[in-house]
Amino acid sequence: MSEPTSPSRPSVLVVDDNAAFLDNLEELLGDAGYAVRGASSCKAARERVREGFDVALVDLRLPDGDGTALAAELKAASPDSEVVLLTGFATLETAVAAVRAGACAYLMKPCAPQELLLTLEQAMRQVRLHAEKRELARRAQVTEKLAAVGTMTAGLSHEIRNPLNAAALQLSVLERRLRRLPDGQQAPLLEPLLLVRDEIRRLDHILEDFLQFARPREFRPASVDVNEMLRRVVDLLSGQAASRKVSLEVTPREAPVPSVAGEEERLRQVLINLCLNALEATPAGGTVTLSAGHEGGRVWLTVDDSGPGVPQEARDRIFEPFFTTKAQGSGLGLSIVHAIVTQHGGSLEVDTAPGGGARFILRMPLAG
């Protein structure tokens, strides 16, 4: 089984009513590593744009509209993408209109293949620059949230943890006294007490998430046996999987996976968190699958589920502090997981599993 990859080929939308020209471009650009989709009209292009694109090659003259106006629509629909206008009848007016429409380039047809490929690469540089700016803005937002968590930590540790511990202690004393009562009198009194105890435990776990995220402990790497770690994770969670009527399994391998450099306890925490999320998302009768392998000097692990998957609009934010799609929770679980993986020199990303559910891909450096 080879290393899982995310769809990474840049996509090009070609809008032209010349079928032969479309075919030629699809072959040329496909061989150059682009994923190409064609549209022969403005209407077809508007439908295609919903699928997303990195660069659009748009003919100025289309059977149901003007390419310049379409270019402006495409830029408005996908501001981080780029548009290149094509024409066989170049004039100064059309060049000015192309710039006003937001096009990054303007080519004469027929254009030499190398000129077209060079223009596409320049457009892709702009697309990558947009993506980098967006990522920098996201990181700045995360940094601000981290600073807020750090400021709150000292107060939370003292002002919340101490009262919680005191309340838990008193509940424990009260529970022991209630259990001395006759059996018939215990049940109606214990039910609300146990409910309060569970809620205190939940608050304590949320507080622990805050503290762990705000004050990560010192990193002390060692050699971690990936195969043994996977076995232990499955053993620990097999009971929860059975109670949910979900199958939890590890994809068998012919050869063991090499060890990675890290802290076994924390990496196990990463996998347990990812697996618990997968179990929650998977309906009864579904499957959560762990896989592992190595390629190119690194080990990869995947956690796949057969649930509904992660919506595209949530993927860019799923590792942000306090972002959650759950009705309950601190929104720090995946942020902590991401922080642990980053501290280990690894990477974590979300994708779509082969069965349509969520796939989390963890990549880690091999142990030295």
Rank of each mutant, 00 (worst) to 15 (best):
V337P: 11
A123W: 00
G52W: 03
V337F: 13
A98E: 06
L190A: 06
R266W: 15
L366W: 14
P192C: 00
A367I: 04
E199G: 01
K326F: 04
A140T: 08
R48I: 01
R100P: 03
R232E: 14
P163I: 05
D17S: 13
V303D: 04
L301M: 14
G356W: 04
R215L: 12
H344G: 11
V12M: 09
A95K: 04
L92W: 11
N24S: 12
R244S: 03
P321G: 00
Q312E: 13
P321A: 00
A339L: 15
E263H: 12
M108I: 07
L267H: 14
P258N: 01
T87H: 05
T143S: 09
Y106Q: 01
D16E: 15
M229S: 12
N162L: 11
E115K: 06
V250M: 12
A90I: 10
R220K: 10
F319C: 00
I160E: 02
V224C: 09
T282R: 07
V173E: 11
D316W: 06
P321W: 00
R231E: 11
S172W: 01
E199P: 00
L189D: 10
S223H: 05
R139L: 14
G368C: 07
A167I: 05
N18C: 11
R48K: 07
N18P: 12
A284F: 12
V310F: 02
R61H: 11
S8W: 09
L22Q: 14
L29W: 12
K75A: 00
L25W: 10
M364Y: 09
M229K: 13
T91H: 07
Q328T: 15
P110F: 05
G184S: 00
S259G: 15
L171G: 01
H130P: 02
M124N: 08
G102C: 01
A147P: 02
V96E: 07
R359H: 07
L136V: 10
Q343A: 15
R266F: 15
R215N: 14
D66H: 07
L60G: 08
H338A: 13
P4R: 06
R125G: 07
H338F: 13
P252G: 02
D17W: 14
S347M: 03
A367D: 14
L194N: 05
R179A: 01
E280D: 15
